[in-house]
């Protein structure tokens, strides 16, 4: 499927109908998801209205993890099949991914203030999300730092892959660390079982986030395709065409 898109024009044609579709899904979901989340869904018997934070927090958390998986998958694809479009996809996903991770941390923290009585606990989930956020920053730094696009792309593959293999390890180790250091009194696994009246807005918001992410990737890849075109056009100006002298067989001296 990826080789089908190796032609930028074909990708452009695909994006031309896929982008509006993603936006349609996004706004459709938001049109129902926002009112449902903010108004029509019931408040939780324990958490009260703070449960409404969940509708932006949980999808962001899911996306933060999914997006890194996406980056790793694209890195692997680029690694194995040397597919430059996969690099562009991974690059386009990194910014949104970092924002999803940041939003997860911020909304989680704001939710934690009234619920746990503190802005931050070194809870396993929070901590591993923080490290995931750091990984995103490192990944983005690789793209930002390099002067040569091609080189940055190939280095980013390494960071994407190593970062991804590391995610479960971080998760596991943080779990371990947390259970040793922190009595699990604040967070209970048996929280409120989700009622369908809450599941609907949650699902809609999650779908909206996925649509938004797809649109981010599509537009990011399109931008990088255009940027490549511009660079290619600009290139003959920057370099001088070289015409090596024809080497005659008898061109011996000395």
């Amino acid at each position: 499927m990826l080789s089908y898109f190796s032609n930028p024009a074909r990708f452009e044609a695909f994006a031309r109908w896929a982008s509006p579709l993603a936006l349609l899904v996004l706004f459709g979901c938001l049109a129902f998801g926002i009112p449902m989340g903010l108004y029509f869904s019931p408040e939780d018997y324990q958490q009260g209205h703070t449960v409404r934070i969940m509708y932006v927090h949980v999808p962001a958390a899911i996306m933060a993890e999914l997006v890194f998986g996406f980056i790793a998958l694209m890195s692997l694809t680029a690694f194995v099949w040397r597919h430059t479009l996969a690099d562009a996809c991974a690059r386009a996903a990194a910014g949104p991914g970092a924002i999803f991770a940041a939003l997860t941390l911020i909304t989680g923290s704001v939710w934690g203030r009234p619920t746990w009585g503190t802005w931050w606990v070194w809870d396993a989930r929070l901590t591993s999300m923080l490290i995931l956020f750091l990984t995103y920053i490192g990944y983005i730094a690789v793209w930002q730092m390099g002067t040569d696009e091609n080189k940055s792309a190939r280095l980013a593959r390494i960071v994407g892959l190593v970062g991804f293999i590391n995610v479960p390890i971080v998760k596991f180790s943080v779990d371990w660390w947390n259970t040793l250091h922190q009595p699990a009194s604040l967070l209970r696994a048996d929280g409120p079982t989700i009622h369908s009246s809450m599941l609907w807005p949650l699902g809609l918001m999650a779908l909206a986030y996925i649509a938004l992410f797809s649109w981010f990737v599509l537009s990011g890849v399109r931008t990088s395709i255009y940027e490549k075109q511009i660079a290619r056009r600009a290139q003959p100006l920057a370099s001088r065409p070289i015409k090596p002298e024809q080497m005659a067989a008898g061109d011996q001296n000395g």
Binding site: T135, G163, S173, W176
Partner: peptide, 13 residues
């Protein structure tokens, strides 16, 4: 920053 995610599990254990 690149080494941090790899170092943290090491540090914890």
């Amino acid at each position: 920053i690149l080494a941090a995610p790899l170092s943290i599990p090491v540090l914890i254990f």
